[in-house]
């Protein structure tokens, strides 16, 4: 037996959260042909099927593009600080499995040694419902990084499209159970397993000193689109917004692809050229992060390639690394 919910039932669920004053986000058509994860104010805006992957990721519901950390106010030479906190509402987020799978990965960096409660508060307040995939495109490579079209990592419940506007619901946590309590019907229909994209690359050993960086990443424009749309990229800047009388200190998204990212005050820049910055991104994902925290910093969503104006992306660079290893095999 399985539990099923109709598309109308999913919209009712979303409407119920909105009526309660909670937040709901998910894939939504922002304009013709552009699907993004967005906070929605009407459940009719949610898309549950009919697309491969939104053009962004769900990380912004946990790690916003712009997060006020505290406000400051100057009273003469006295400074008054006021803490900022994430909004105290629950969130319901509909996501692809490759986006949800980024969350347990990001938990490591935001909690090692000291905890970033801005992230943790949002994480605790959120129920993630994943929409298992039933199609893929040329950029999808979840199966090459140990995930798949119905990966459960980071999900509180997984939905499988059964056709005819029905979805099988498989809750994976108490949060997921609670979200769907009394909203499903028993059924003998179950989802047909879907294999997802073929394995496109065997994860190669990523080396710091390699000619591949110059060769494979010279086209990179340094725009940062890969990082901004990546579910796992999490670099940020801390800046003041305001003036000498008052304002806020905020955490804003940043990217290792920008030339100013590592520029020293002296003018020295350890990553002075774009291939070095690309190296940092790939090396971070496949060497640094797993060395430090265990999991790799990539879920194979393919957004980096979909959004890259120069046709790069993680998969292409991994393939280039794999090819360079093959070239250098001893005869």
């Amino acid at each position: 037996m399985s539990r099923i919910i109709t598309e109308a039932g999913l919209r009712e669920l979303a409407e119920a959260w909105l009526r309660d004053g909670q937040a709901v986000a998910g894939p939504s058509e922002v304009k013709l042909g552009l699907i993004q994860y967005r906070p929605i104010t009407a459940a009719a805006r949610l898309l549950f099927d009919g697309f491969v992957h939104p053009a962004n990721s769900i990380k912004e519901f946990f790690f916003p593009r712009h997060e006020p950390l505290y406000r400051y106010r100057l009273e003469g030479s006295r400074v008054v600080l006021e803490d900022c906190e994430p909004p105290a509402v629950k969130q319901l987020v509909f996501a692809r499995p490759c986006d949800a799978a980024a969350l347990p990965v990001l938990d490591h960096v935001f909690n090692w040694d000291c905890a970033d409660e801005f992230y943790n508060r949002r994480r605790e307040a959120t129920t993630v419902v994943t929409l298992a995939c039933s199609r893929y495109d040329d950029e999808c490579f979840c199966t090459s990084v140990g995930l798949g079209p119905a990966a459960e990592q980071g999900a509180d419940a997984v939905l499988f499209a059964l056709g005819g506007g029905a979805f099988e619901v498989r809750p994976t946590t108490a949060k997921g159970d609670a979200a769907f309590a009394d909203r499903t019907e028993e059924s003998d229909r179950t989802a047909t397993p879907f294999a997802g994209p073929p394995r496109r690359v065997a994860l190669p050993r990523v080396e710091f000193d390699s000619p591949v960086w110059e060769d494979a990443t010279l086209e990179c424009l340094g725009c940062g689109a890969c990082a901004y749309t990546c579910p796992t990229c999490h670099c940020f800047d801390i800046v003041d917004e305001g003036n000498a009388a008052g304002g806020m200190r905020a955490k804003n998204w940043d990217s290792c692809q920008f030339s100013l990212f590592t520029l020293h005050a002296s003018g020295h820049n350890p990553r002075h050229a774009q291939p070095r910055r690309q190296r940092q991104r790939i090396y971070h994902k496949f060497h640094i992060y797993p060395e430090k925290f265990g999991p790799i910093l990539c879920t194979g969503c393919g957004n980096c390639a979909r959004q890259c104006p120069a046709g790069l992306g993680v998969l292409n660079v991994l393939k280039a690394i794999e090819a360079s290893h093959a070239e250098h095999l001893p005869a």
Partner: peptide, 24 residues
């Protein structure tokens, strides 16, 4: 080392030399 830093807490991602976070 004088790598550029923002958070000082091993999170913001810019001061590393390989897997070594210079701030930590």
């Amino acid at each position: 080392l004088e790598n550029r830093m923002k958070c000082g807490l091993g999170k913001c991602g810019r001061c590393n030399a390989g897997e070594c976070y210079v701030c930590k």
